[in-house]
Design a protein around this nucleic acid. Structure first.
Length: 496
RNA sequence: GGCGGCUUGGCCAAGCGGUAAGGCGACGGCCUGCAAAGCCGUUAUUCUCCAGUUCAAAUCUGGAAGCCGCCUCCA
């Protein structure tokens, strides 16, 4: 059993064999920091976060690079509009991006390079391309990459340059030798950010930064390159052209591209005005609900964001946490366990370094993840495991045998371990449900003391067999969307 | 015009040649004073349609219909 990855380059699922044993170099295209991040950014980031976690879990030493494009026409435009410095703009949105991704429990990549901090690398890269006659400088204009100098052009996107030419939707630039040639370096207009170069003061084109920075941190060839589907052409196609034309060897072994997020079955677009920002989604839903949603469908397919789907996710996550809470109450103690040290599962130690290696459910989960990071089936495995655990607890009744307790402990350990890969179930069930209750109480419409009072009154009524009054109170609370649960340890309440 | 993808139960969604995972919802049962939660059972003899290959197809091939993405900044 080993990892298989769908490779955009070949259009097939392939066995994952890294270039160097036990080491993985992964580069993912990060955001252009000129505006607030939307749910689509979150999907890409969360998916590659899970891929990163899974590669590490699989024992690889992963160098994960995700860049920030911090010099670009859109940033300059935004700077001009707001009268701010472009650096101020990019710093603002980098900070915002980090805050939001931290909130979504996304691990920081190994390295987060910025284009503006690698201008010399970029200039060197372009100079070498010119030397090799893969690029040319047009006096008073740009440095262009010559696509006819690279015979593999179009291999990633399956496009034939001749078919695309016609310039149907691109204004033909008289300076280009071939209409499909693209800019490596462009001259700066007065007031624009600029760096000195052999071709005058200017700034890099979009594609070159990724070739230059991936080369700096991961070398001439590396294992995985990812990003959104829309980047396949032209961005990634052009990266391949630049890097392979220069180094004469395969740039990237596995290309991974994620699908888009639609909003109510429509593409996010400015004209529809339906850009859904991460901060707005975070204001409405628990971060783990958002992750669960983003991972509920295969990463290559489009996913539709809508209220109905999100409501389902709320029920789903509650179900898992409810089981963990139930197990906890049955004296399965995992409150201090974390993904590295299953500290309280002492009876589950399976090897000398006391690291829990996982039970049957974990084995199923591993198979799911190894199959092209199939998080949708991996989530199904979590639910199957929850059901198994609930069954054991149901059968046990009041007194659970030590044998069953051990089984439930293993199940809980597996569930927590699976959650740690998907970046969910990081809270204790108690704090999860407390947060949920606090959030529902936040508007101040309901006084929890009043609810407790009614619950106490109902308990008294039940004791004296005054069920009519007890039911009356249940009904009253139900109208406030409060559900009562009579458990062995007394009555608890929650919001529906 | 060129390239690529999708169509699975009321809804969401796996599956990629061996006889339909999982979630949400609904209904019946167990449990409960009544509930909730949980569990058990029922909710697709069938995967947009048509033809073909095969002992065997949701899965492969050909065709039709509908939907979507990229080719321009885009995760």
């Amino acid at each position: 059993m080993s990892l298989k990855i769908y490779n955009t380059l070949t259009g097939k699922k392939e066995m994952f064999v890294p270039l160097q044993p036990n080491k993985v170099g992964m580069y993912v295209c990060g955001p252009t920091v000129y505006d607030t991040s939307h749910i689509g950014h979150a999907r890409s980031v969360v998916i590659f976060d899970v891929i990163f976690r899974w590669l590490k879990e699989s024992g690889y030493d992963v160098c994960y690079v995700r860049n920030f494009t911090d010099v670009d026409d859109k940033i300059i435009k935004r700077a001009n509009e707001t009268g701010k410095d472009p650096i101020e703009i990019s710093e603002k949105y980098i900070k915002e991006f980090h805050n939001e991704m931290d909130a979504l429990n996304v691990l920081r990549p190994t390295i987060e390079p910025k284009a503006t901090e690698h201008i010399q690398d970029i200039i060197n890269f372009i100079e070498m391309l010119i030397e090799k006659r893969k690029a040319y400088y047009v006096e008073g204009s740009d440095v262009f990459f010559s696509i006819s100098s690279f015979e593999g052009y179009g291999k990633l996107s399956g496009r034939n340059p001749d078919d695309m030419i016609a310039g149907a939707r691109i204004a033909i630039d008289e300076n280009k030798k071939n209409p499909m040639d693209f800019t490596l370096w462009k001259p700066a207009k007065p007031g624009e950010p600029a760096w000195d170069s052999p071709w005058g003061a200017g700034r890099p084109g979009w594609h070159i930064e990724c070739s230059a920075m991936s080369n700096r941190y991961l070398g001439q060839s590396f294992d995985i390159h990812g990003g959104g589907k829309d980047l396949i052409f032209p961005h990634h196609e052009n990266e391949i052209a630049q890097s392979e034309a220069l180094f004469g060897k395969q740039f990237v072994k596995y290309w991974i591209h994620n699908g888009f997020v639609d909003i109510n079955n429509e593409k996010m677009s400015k004209s529809l005005g339906n850009f859904t920002m991460i901060k707005d989604v975070l204001a409405k839903y628990h971060p783990e609900i958002i992750r669960l949603f983003l991972l509920s469908k295969h990463y290559r397919s489009p996913i539709d964001y809508n209220e109905n789907s999100m409501a389902e996710m709320v029920s789903s996550l509650d179900k898992i946490y409810a089981f963990l809470e139930r197990a906890n109450k049955a004296n399965v103690d995992f409150s201090d366990s974390d993904k590295n040290k299953m500290g309280n599962f002492n009876n589950l130690k399976s090897d000398s370094n006391s690291c829990y290696s996982g039970g049957e459910s974990w084995a199923a989960f591993k198979e799911n993840m190894d199959d092209d990071f199939n998080s949708a089936t991996a989530i199904a495995t979590i639910f199957n495991t929850v059901k198994e655990g609930n069954k054991l607890l149901d059968r046990s009744g009041e007194t659970i045998s030590s044998d069953n307790l051990k089984k439930v402990a293993e199940i809980c350990a597996d569930i927590k371990k699976m959650g740690s890969i998907l970046g969910i179930l990081s809270q204790s069930p108690q704090s999860y449900f407390k947060d949920k209750k606090d959030a529902a109480l936040a508007d101040g419409a309901i006084d929890p003391k009043m609810v407790d009072q009614l619950v106490m009154e109902r308990t008294e009524a039940r004791k004296s067999k005054n069920f009519a009054r007890a039911d009356e109170i249940r009904k009253e609370l139900d109208s406030m969307k409060i559900i009562l649960e009579d458990g062995t340890g007394g009555t608890t309440w929650k919001f529906s």
